[in-house]
């Protein structure tokens, strides 16, 4: 049976679905015997989702959007003069 360290090393590929069937089987057998690794796997997956959802919330604030718009307008004007 694989040990916890090997299990953690394989999590990335396991989530990607890129492990061969033999390795997937060994990993899943390990999970059955090892609740801490299941907890580790669940929290590893949650970490990814939590960080993605939080950091993806960033919107351009209105004042920045206005500054960018005037900046682009100015750039275009200068370009048209050339």
């Amino acid at each position: 049976m694989i040990c916890c360290k090997e299990c953690v090393d394989l999590l990335y590929e396991y989530i990607e679905g890129s492990l061969d069937s033999g390795t997937t089987k060994s990993l899943e057998e390990h999970f059955q015997e090892c609740p801490p690794c299941i907890a580790f796997f669940n929290t590893y997956k949650s970490t990814r989702t939590l960080c993605r959802d939080t950091l993806n919330e960033i919107e351009i604030p209105d004042e920045v959007r206005h500054t960018l718009q005037s900046f682009l307008k100015e750039q275009k004007k200068q370009q048209e003069k050339k």
Binding site: C3, C34, P36, C37, N42, T43, S46
Partner: peptide
Amino acid sequence: GFQQEKIQDWS
């Protein structure tokens, strides 16, 4: 190669 710390599932 076994987990050394206590792992809690907070997911």
